Simulated assay, not measured.
Amino acid sequence: MPYPTLVEEITGHSCVNLGCANGGIDTYLQDPDLMNIARQAERAVVQVMGAQNLSNRYFRVHPRRNDRFVEPTILLIKAFPEADFSEINFNKHLLQTLYRISPRRCNLVVEELKLTWVDRMREMLRGFKRRPVLLWLRYDNTRGADESVGLGPNPLLVDRKMIQKLGDDAAELVEIAVKPAGATGEMDRMSFGALETPAAAHLIGPRFHGRIATRLSAVFPPGPE
């Protein structure tokens, strides 16, 4: 069971999981109905999302499936005239390609993404009537990292300086180091189809969902008797 369900069992509060597959910050900011549901919560939790899935000055992402690369802007085309963008479908692949061409020029795009991430996170957090809890799941470097192209572990491109820039926009920061199920040997405790095995290996397993639920439950007010 995912951690929102476990939090509900522990605290007695009704918990609504608004997580969107392949959705980033833009998915939520562009969906007023979804954000309205979240803003009415007695206590909201915003999980830190990677910075690679944001439309910015260099490229555009799909409005809902934010992990998908839609098109480069003229700024990116000028910065990487040797790049062929026609066969790139995902943002991570885009950044890997740019890094292999030129780490120095790729860093310009990375810094743009980091600045954009801070601005969009501030916009999201400040939209709540009550400051939400910020949940930062820091993936262990043994899995989910791609150091060969300088992207680091999930959530991609997010570092402590970026979190600190959010200041008091969040009521509290819950930070937990996690490892994917493929590294912890928990895949036999998960349900998935044969074709989903590679994806399941990169997800966190039951042990860490339980750990997250325990930590989050401690910041919730007492539930109904």
Rank of each mutant, 00 (worst) to 15 (best):
N53K: 10
F59M: 08
G50Y: 03
D67V: 02
D26F: 12
E42K: 12
P63D: 08
L29S: 07
N53S: 12
R57H: 05
R43I: 08
R57I: 15
S55W: 00
R43W: 13
G23M: 06
R68I: 15
R57E: 13
V70I: 01
R60V: 14
T27N: 07
I25E: 01
L18R: 01
T27A: 08
I10E: 07
Q40D: 12
A44E: 03
F59P: 03
V46Y: 01
S55P: 02
Q40G: 11
S14H: 07
C15N: 07
Q52E: 09
F69W: 03
R39E: 11
V70L: 00
N66R: 06
A51I: 04
R43P: 00
A21F: 14
D67F: 02
L34N: 06
R57S: 11
Q52S: 10
N22C: 09
A41I: 02
I25L: 10
N36L: 04
H62Q: 12
S14K: 08
G24P: 04
G23W: 05
V16H: 07
G24T: 14
H13D: 00
R65Q: 12
I25C: 05
F69M: 03
G24D: 11
D31A: 10
V16I: 14
P32Q: 11
M49V: 15
E8W: 09
L34G: 02
E9F: 03
M35C: 10
Q47M: 15
C20I: 15
I10F: 02
E71P: 03
Q30D: 14
A41W: 01
G24S: 12
V7M: 13
L34A: 13
E8M: 09
G23E: 10
Q52M: 15
V7L: 10
T11L: 07
Q52I: 15
R43C: 13
Y58L: 07
D26C: 11
P32D: 10
G12Q: 03
P63T: 07
G50I: 00
L18G: 01
D67H: 09
I25Y: 06
Y58K: 02
V46H: 01
R65D: 08
A51Y: 05
R65L: 15
T27F: 06
A21S: 12
P32Y: 09
T11F: 08
Y28M: 14
Q30F: 12
C15Y: 11
N36Y: 01
R65G: 06
N56F: 03
Q52N: 13
N66D: 07
Y58P: 00
R64L: 06
I37A: 14
G12S: 05
F59A: 06
Q52G: 07
V46R: 04
V48A: 04
G19P: 00
L34P: 02
V46D: 00
L34T: 09
D33G: 10
L18P: 00
N53V: 07
C20K: 14
N36H: 10
D26M: 13
Q52C: 12
T27M: 05
T11K: 06
R64F: 11
A21N: 14
V46C: 14
R65Y: 12
R57G: 08
D26N: 10
P32S: 11
N36C: 04
H13P: 00
R43S: 11
N53A: 14
R39T: 09
D33I: 15
Q47W: 00
G50M: 00
F59I: 09
V46A: 13
D33R: 13
Q40P: 02
R39L: 09
R68Q: 11
L54S: 06
L29F: 08
N36P: 00
E9S: 05
R57M: 14
H62P: 02
R64K: 11
